[in-house]
Structure formats: C-alpha cells, structure tokens
Design a protein around this nucleic acid. Structure first.
Lengths: 217, 217
DNA sequence: GTGTGCCGAACGATCGTTCGGTGGGTAGAG
DNA sequence: CTCTACCCACCGAACGATCGTTCGGCACAC
C-alpha cells in the first residue's frame, strides 16, 4: 500500500549523517519509522502487526528495516514516549498548576483532548497497553501517575464543594478520564474539528448531557 | 495458578453427555471454557494469550483442550456472543422502548452499566476488537448497531430540546458511549458495588461533574 | 469390547531477529 | 581529472522460538 513517508517532521535528536543517501530521498529517522509503526499498530493492534507489515509500510524490506531500528519494542517505546511527553506537558502548563481546582481541571481536560487528537495514534497505543512486557509496565506506571494527578484535582474540587453533593471523587475521576480517553475509539481528525471536540467534551464532562437549569427529566 | 473452574453457570446450549466423567468433577462445557478464556484474554489480550495458556488455566493439556473446543476463534466468538446478548437484551426491555427519549436513555445507560459490570470480561473483549478476522468484524458490526440505537435516542432527545442548547447529538452520543464503555478499563466488582456505580455513571453522564445549582435527585 | 477424556509429540506456519553479502556513492590520494 | 578503498543503505536467506492445530495412542468407566 501507500509508502506513508510524506512530510515527516524530522525531529530525530541527532540528525543522521547527511549527503550519504540519494539527494531526493529523506532518511529513515527513528521518529519517522515510529510514526509508520504507530499507524499500523493503531489499525491492527501491536501483537497482530508484524515487522514484515511495518517494513512494507515503510517501503523497504524487513532486514533493511532492522538497519534503522533496534527492534519492535523500540518502536513501541518511541511511540509511548511521544504520547507520555504530550500528556505530562499538559500537567506542567501554568494554567494547570495555579488557581482553584475547577479551572485547573477544565484547562487540563481541554488540553488533554487536544493532545489526544493531535497525537492520536501514539496515545491510542498507550491506552491499549496490557502490561505484558517491561516496557509496557513502565508506560502503564507513568500513565497511572498522570491519572492520579487528575484524580487529586477532582478530590480537591469535591472537598471545596464545587461538585454535585454525593459525588465520589474516585469514581468521578475514573469516569472523567474514561470519557476523555474514549475519544481514541472514534475520533478522526478529518471528521470533527479539534476546537469543536474540545468544547463538546468540556461541556459534557462538567455540565452533563442535559441542561443545568432546564428540567432534566 | 488457580484452576478457575468454580461455580460455572452451566448455560451451554445442548448439555454435554452427562455421567461419563468421574462423578466428582463437572464437565468442561463450552461456556465454562469460554469463561476461562475470557478472563485470560482480559488480562493479556487476545493475541498475546496462547492456547497453552488457556489449557493450563483450565487444568488440562493443550491437546485435551482441543477435545472440547474447536479452536481459539470459537472461544472468542462465544465470549462476544455473550457480551452482545447482554447488550441487545437491554435494548429490548420495555423501559428502553416506551416513553420519552430521556427516561429511555437513562434506563439504557443504567442497565448497560449493569451488563458491563456483570459480564465484564466478555464486554471488555468486545470493546477491544480491532477487526482483524471475519469473526471480529461481525461482532464490530453488531456493536455498531447497538451504538447507533443509542445515538438515535440521543438525537431524539436533542430534537425534543431536552439537552443543552448547542449539543451536537453525534458527538454527545459518542461521549456517552465512551464514558460508559470506559468502565471496563478500571471497574472491578470487588471494589465498588454495582448499584453505586450505576448511580454515579447516570449522574455524571446526564448532570455532569459540576451540575446545576440543585441537587441531582 | 467400546467409547470417551486425556495426553505427548509433532505438524506447518509465522513470528522477531540475525547475518553475510552487494552495489552504488563518497572521500582521499595520485 | 582518475583511481581506489571504503562506507553504508539495502537485500535475500535463514535462524530459533512460538504459534494454533492435528494425530495416534493410552487408561479407565461402562
């Protein structure tokens, strides 16, 4: 199928020796191959995707593929790194660190949705992990850190009396994460604009499906 | 490890020839082996779980396992059948068929949560499908039918003016399904009672995390 | 004897990975 | 400039391991 090498953001740490390859082609960086791999993993799942599939998607043979990548797990690791960097970057933003809990929560939810939408294949991979290998367990641990940071904010909000009376902050935080993370199951950038998605998620999470002042039943 | 054969609801269609096996042991029905398989799939994922794993969990060798089950895909099919039967059973209940859209939606959400909680491994399997085989694509098609039935109700509710003004019914339905389905990622029956879960999900879906001025119920 | 539950062994296929080699291009010496 | 030695992206073939599945036979209850 399609070579899938168009317009790769060449964000490889130390640029590969230039001038060696033919002038027209761009080199196979780790990041570009991680991108190819992540899209394949997204479609078929990690286990069901073979290195043969990946190398064919990259346009070279399996053995050539190994010239650029140390192995399958390195591709997974690279994709998970990218996803986790995006998520933890949100937690470090000023609006996520300062102010009352509810506005901070709103900011995190909105930005988290943006990260999910822009880094969709990578985050999808992160959210589908089962913890079968050491790499997967490491990523699951970091993901749990993120969830716990959000859960702490939800608890703050409930203790401040900002939520519905009777809301269990633990369950509420789980449902919050679940709602946001479930985007990966259906969201496709070409169908819905990111800005619309962000607004819709924020409203549904904080105000619910039904109106606040309107009679709900 | 534990044999995992305790108290299996023997709901195998045509009961296996009884009285042949030793008097103390109960036979390996398809349903009981599907249960074993579903729990293993839940932990490690379908592809990462080998028939060796399954047979060992059932307490017999791999070749003996094949004496009772036609193959791996049949176990998947059995589990998916059970999940889909539970979900479509909800759609057929009177409270899901009659009345204004919002109460019907509330009933479906509450009952859907109950089904997810009680049939957790089976529904989890259904929600993690990637569509790699014909069986998986069939199940994904049926699951899409369910989602579309719920989406149609959400659209009815918005057209009746019952929801927030400006709510996109398509996105709202996706988020609704996502919130409910995300239960499989964290819910464990021994930690939270089903009744509490049902109430929490209903409130969060319809009234949101913050909610209006008045108490929800 | 007969049938059934169970098992060890092995099947072909496919997996991720390795290895030796090749061909075209560059860099350096003349 | 030409010649040469080298480098490296790339490839075909094969590795051992593991997969799902099959087969022939053993033991025991009827």
């Amino acid at each position: 199928m399609s070579a899938t090498r168009e317009a790769v953001t060449n964000q490889d740490g130390a640029a590969r020796r230039p001038g060696r390859r033919a002038a027209n082609a761009e080199p196979y960086t780790l990041a570009s191959l991680v991108e190819v791999a992540a899209h394949a993993f997204l479609e078929r799942g990690y286990d069901a995707t073979s290195m043969e599939d990946l190398s064919r998607a990259a346009g070279i043979t399996k053995s050539s593929f190994y010239h650029h990548v140390s192995g399958k797990e390195a591709l997974l690791r690279g994709a998970l790194d990218r996803a986790l960097d995006g998520l933890f970057g949100v937690l470090g933003e000023p609006d996520a660190l300062e102010g009352p809990p509810v506005p901070r929560l709103r900011h995190i939810v909105r930005r988290q949705v943006e990260v999910l939408a822009t880094e969709l294949p990578y985050v999808t991979l992160l959210l589908r992990l089962r913890g079968n290998t050491e790499t997967e367990r490491w990523a699951l641990g970091r993901r749990r850190e993120f969830d716990q940071a959000v859960a702490a904010l939800v608890r703050e909000a409930t203790e401040a009396g900002a939520t519905h009376p009777g809301v269990d902050p633990v369950i509420a935080a789980r449902l919050l994460s679940g709602t946001v993370n479930s985007l990966i199951e259906w969201y496709r950038p070409e169908r819905v604009a990111v800005a619309d998605l962000v607004d819709a998620v924020e409203r549904q999470v904080f105000e619910g499906l039904l109106g606040g002042l309107r009679p709900s039943r």
